[in-house]
Nucleic acid binder design. Sequence first.
DNA 1: CCACTTTTTGCAATCGGTTGCAAATCATCA
DNA 2: TGATGATTTGCAACCGATTGCAAAAAGTGG
Lengths: 333, 333
Amino acid sequence: MMSDESPARPLTSRELAALIGVSQSAVSRAFTPGSSISSKLRARILGAAHEYGYQPNAIASMMTTKRTKIVGIVVSDMRNPFYPALIERLTQALQRVGFQSLLFNISPGARIEEQLVAIRTYNVDTVIVISATILDDRTLNWAAGGRRAILLNRLSHQDMPTVCCDNVAGARAVVDHFHAIDRHRIGYVAGLAKTAVGMTRQGAFTTRLAELGMRLVGSAGSEAYTFEAGWQGALDLLAARPDAIFFASDILALGGLGALRAAGVRIPEDIAVAGFDDIVMAGWPTNDLTTYRQPVDQLIEKAIEMTLAAEIDEDRLVLLPGELIIRGSTSGD
Amino acid sequence: MMSDESPARPLTSRELAALIGVSQSAVSRAFTPGSSISSKLRARILGAAHEYGYQPNAIASMMTTKRTKIVGIVVSDMRNPFYPALIERLTQALQRVGFQSLLFNISPGARIEEQLVAIRTYNVDTVIVISATILDDRTLNWAAGGRRAILLNRLSHQDMPTVCCDNVAGARAVVDHFHAIDRHRIGYVAGLAKTAVGMTRQGAFTTRLAELGMRLVGSAGSEAYTFEAGWQGALDLLAARPDAIFFASDILALGGLGALRAAGVRIPEDIAVAGFDDIVMAGWPTNDLTTYRQPVDQLIEKAIEMTLAAEIDEDRLVLLPGELIIRGSTSGD
DNA sequence: CCACTTTTTGCAATCGGTTGCAAATCATCA
DNA sequence: TGATGATTTGCAACCGATTGCAAAAAGTGG
């Protein structure tokens, strides 16, 4: 496979065909699984390809098949460590099934549409949208340009294919846990309030609180899922004297933990703290954060399944349950 | 731009040409800057394109121009937060100059070459290699398949175009700082010892120690740039009773800080701690880590420059200085 | 107004594969 | 062995743009 030095210009199928005296279509078929070719000829061609270092040109085959084997991944927040971890595993999983990932990193504020023009011209087979923020459904549809768009860890109001953690179950699990450890004055630090995911978590959280007769003593908004926002949110809540705080994401919770500790609050004795996501840092001994773990592997598996499926008729909205990971920030060890 | 509903099949240049009664080549030229076309005709065509929602098909133009406007980004460690931050800014910068990023996320151990076959078939214009680990020069050359490969934050033994932080300056700056705050029993926690970057940092560090007559009381290896490795490395060093420890990267240092604090060591009174990279978490008040900041923006700027350059004759190895960021982990506030 | 230069436009070949169709080969069975 | 059907192979059109070349149009000067 790594034979010889690569020539300046790579071999074409026609050239390889000429070299070994077969037709060019035979070469093409040799590389196309399931095509009409005898195994003997295929073996001979693959052998020669190996020997001369021929590899089919993916661009050319995109021309005719109109399939690029590329998925566009739309992201906007790689600062929150949850996303890189998700992207890493997603791209690897895609590679395993023969797809490559074209990254569209859209930055807020700037001319969104302009940033998305490329996604149409590159003819990606599928668009996977991870970005929680920014894109509204309409823009998204336009960007996909008729291709399949899959929402990953993000909700929409239309019926686009969606794979998402069950935020309701997650928020409820946290409340139930607070209840179990006998906390009743609860605080909430929201992420981006405008997003569907953010609203779902918050809604389920407050609903469950009410069901159990617990008291939401205060809630703080925030403009972003960042450490600083969590820090500030925690400080904002202190006056309400909560005995437990739920942060809409781990990165917020870490900021909150920092602020609370700096303020001399004992965790979990004075205030229990829980987050959402279970990013790797949540498990670090220095943080030891109770959190609702997103089922990343299953999310990805489902997303891949949707990417490969010919049609997505049923189960357009897949909600997967996660798991509450109880650590020292709520259980007095 | 967002006109109408996108038709199932997007318009081709020939169809648009027919619609408004011009030749297909005119349409092509209208979209090609600097091509021979009157501004009047161009305006008419662009107007019609807008109206009918036509956009040139990038795949087709790749066929003829043999330029894909895609750079392959080879990564292997997205767990270390330094890399996502780098990748985010790199892809955004590339987008700004009209390039898209195809992500090749190679996982260690597995059949590396197999994972890289795609990089050749997709005909990326340039390969930017961020992965510090894994790939040796030979494999890399093969994967690039004659195309330009640029090493970013990584060194090679050949003369491939390289953009890298000045690790020597960085390591020396840290030693000088330890010297300035009067620490003389120094410990070192290495990253992946096998990598060129790792060895450079370590070499410069020990050399400078010697120059200043300071004592390296101990050094710990590690298998990876991870929190856990840093934690373990710090513990390994404790017996040597250092009064300052340099960690080869921030993520290691954070682990080290955790271990040291857990062991009741006061930072910085008992042991001063410094890292390398200046990832965002280093600046969090909870960590407050002194570190050598990598000049990320300049690194990227240079990498983009090399991507766009027709030829890279001179300055094939660009070393950019960073900046020592002094925080609470070394300066007693 | 005409000859001549410069610019604009269209024609048609080309990039490197894929695939429908027909020809050629192989296999099977009477 | 010859007829018949099943496989295998090659031919050639096609995907949707780019671009060299020649024809057409526009601009210039005498």
